[in-house]
Simulated scan of single mutants.
Amino acid sequence: MYSTLLFLHSLGRWAVVGGLVYGIARAYRGWLGNQPFTPLDNTIRHTVATIAHVQLMLGYALYFVSPLLKTFHLRDAEHDPGTLFFGFQHVAAMTVAIVVLTIGAARAKRQPTSTAQFRTMALWFTAALLLILLAIPWPFSPLASRPYFRFPF
């Protein structure tokens, strides 16, 4: 179960990042180009938020079946950056990022004009993407290095 969740979570990372980049590009294009907020834009807004929520739930499931959680103690983790990263920092930062994304998606939906919808989506989604990029364990990260993709075999 752990390796399956790890694989799905690794795959989901790219869906979230790709969806956010695409949503942000459409949002900035619509905002700066003064275009109408179409049903396609609304679908993208909703889909990106949904993918991010699924990824967060996969992450929580992975967290609770992880061998790390069974031995994690915050007082001991200060001496091991990798343990601290996965035991606390990654989970906290990703949760905050998805909350930011959710607020932005909800606020964009309720804006009275297309310009306001695109602006809200662009700014909140950009903030969420920055938080996500900071909290991903990239292969070059000094906090916790992981490969770009995890295979279950």
Rank of each mutant, 00 (worst) to 15 (best):
P67K: 11
F7N: 00
L68K: 11
T4A: 12
D80R: 01
T43F: 12
M121C: 03
G18K: 12
I103K: 02
H90S: 04
R107W: 15
N34Q: 13
G18V: 12
L84H: 09
L68M: 15
Q111V: 11
H53M: 11
V54G: 06
S3R: 12
F7Q: 04
R75A: 14
T38P: 02
I103E: 11
D76P: 00
S114Q: 09
K109G: 01
T71D: 07
L8I: 01
S141M: 09
F85V: 05
T115Q: 14
G19P: 00
G104D: 06
G59S: 12
A15C: 12
A135M: 07
P36I: 05
L32Q: 10
V91M: 05
L130A: 13
A122I: 12
S114E: 10
V21L: 14
T120N: 07
T71F: 01
L69V: 02
T113S: 15
Y2F: 14
L84P: 06
S66F: 03
V54I: 15
I51S: 02
A97N: 03
G30V: 02
R13P: 09
L62V: 04
D76K: 05
I103Q: 07
A106L: 15
T50H: 08
W124M: 13
F86D: 07
G104F: 06
W31L: 05
R26G: 00
V17N: 06
P81G: 01
I98T: 14
D41K: 03
T83W: 02
A128M: 00
L58V: 13
L134Q: 05
R146V: 11
L69Q: 13
F7P: 00
V17S: 09
R29A: 07
L143M: 13
G87I: 02
I44Y: 10
P112R: 13
G87T: 04
A25H: 02
G59E: 10
G104H: 03
H53F: 09
P39K: 10
T115A: 13
V91D: 03
F37H: 11
F72I: 04
R13C: 08
P139G: 10
I51P: 03
I44L: 13
A97R: 01
A61E: 05
A61G: 04
T95C: 00
F125A: 05
A25N: 00
S141H: 09
A116Y: 00
H90M: 08
L6C: 02
L101T: 00
P152K: 14
W31K: 04
G30M: 04
G104P: 07
A135I: 08
S10G: 15
T38H: 11
L130H: 01
L123R: 15
M1G: 08
I24E: 03
A27C: 09
R75H: 13
T43Y: 09
S10A: 11
M121W: 06
W124Y: 15
L123S: 05
R45I: 09
S114K: 02
A93R: 01
S145P: 07
R29G: 07
L5Y: 03
Y28C: 06
R146S: 14
Y60K: 08
F88S: 06
